[in-house]
Simulated scan of single mutants.
Amino acid sequence: MTHPSTATRVVFLGGLGRSGTTLLERLLGELPGVAPLGEVVHLWARGVLAGEPCGCGRPFGACPFWTAVGEHAFGGWTRPLAERVLALRRRVDRTRRVLRIRHPDLDEYVRAYRSVHDAAARVAGASVVIDSSKHASLAHCLAEGGASIHVVHVVRDPRAVAHSWRKAVRRPENGRPMTRWGPARTALHWSAQNVALDLLARRDRRGGADVQVTRLRYEDLIAAPEATLTDLAHRLGLRAEFPFVTGSTAHITTAHTVSGNPMRFAVGPVGLALDESWRSGAHRGLVAALTWPLRSRYGYHGVTA
């Protein structure tokens, strides 16, 4: 696997699923010079092997954007390539390994992602790509492997996240139900992912890698979208131009996102509003107890309110 010599600026959105990373990616993806890619961690299985649709609606293998990316990065997408990266992922990319992420196969694994990021930037004519893979372990792999990334650590109240994971939602790609988790399992994963991203932030402060970490609360984004996005854009070195955001509505265009929340297919006006239905959920007290004190550290106080 090879990749171009020029380094691409990568914004990596990290956090547990159902925390608003897809929405944030779609909003940042409207900025000049930015190419949103979706969850690149799932490109190999869901895109190359399964042929699921791109955010543009075309099957992965029929999408001109991703076809060009594959040609530039690897000379074309192949099953052996995807299977090799997936095998590397099983050996290298695990949350339990973040404290000892260095592995003999790490460099090869990271080169695959750098090749995708670089080729996507070239095809899109962008200076920045957004990878919303979310997994903290992948962020650690990229940082340890020498990729230049700015991680946006997206957090959301764990009680709202747990409520969302219990909902029955069908994947628009194939009509199958999305994974559902119980409140205790969600609380465990919420804590694990956020702790792992906090560890990366500590590494950032120590200057231990070419990585920056910025934390963003989903609730702040929804409460004041333009102000929050402007501040984030400045931190990321992006042009803070948001004519597509009017009050609590964003107007978004088609994006070539390879995987992610069903919102990746949305085009047109999107309402920016909090889902407060979790406040009447039966398990919010349990989730609150299991996620304290990390929850409080992020500003989510109280037990059931």
Rank of each mutant, 00 (worst) to 15 (best):
Y298R: 02
V110N: 06
R159L: 01
G281L: 01
E276K: 02
T291W: 03
D210H: 13
L197V: 09
L86R: 13
G207P: 03
D93V: 03
S19P: 14
V129G: 10
P64S: 12
H72G: 05
E241I: 02
Y298I: 00
S164L: 04
A139E: 14
L142E: 08
P225V: 02
F12Y: 15
V195M: 07
Q212G: 13
L294R: 11
F244T: 10
A82G: 04
V270L: 11
L274K: 09
V98E: 02
A192R: 09
S19A: 14
H153L: 08
H153R: 08
P269C: 05
R297E: 11
F12T: 08
Y298H: 07
F74L: 11
T246R: 15
P64K: 12
G51R: 07
D118G: 15
G268H: 11
L216A: 01
R206C: 05
H189G: 00
V161M: 09
A139C: 06
T249I: 07
L27H: 13
V245C: 04
H153Q: 14
D131M: 11
G285Y: 09
V155S: 00
A273F: 02
H189V: 01
R156T: 03
G17V: 00
A266N: 02
R96W: 05
E219G: 01
L286R: 00
S132N: 09
I252W: 12
R90E: 13
T249W: 12
V85K: 10
L272F: 06
I252M: 09
E83A: 09
V267W: 07
V267A: 12
R94I: 00
R171I: 00
F244R: 12
H234G: 12
H256G: 14
N261T: 08
R205E: 13
N174V: 00
T230S: 13
T78C: 03
G17M: 02
L197Q: 02
H189N: 01
G47P: 02
M1N: 07
S115M: 12
I130S: 09
L188A: 15
G208L: 15
V123T: 05
R235K: 15
G271I: 01
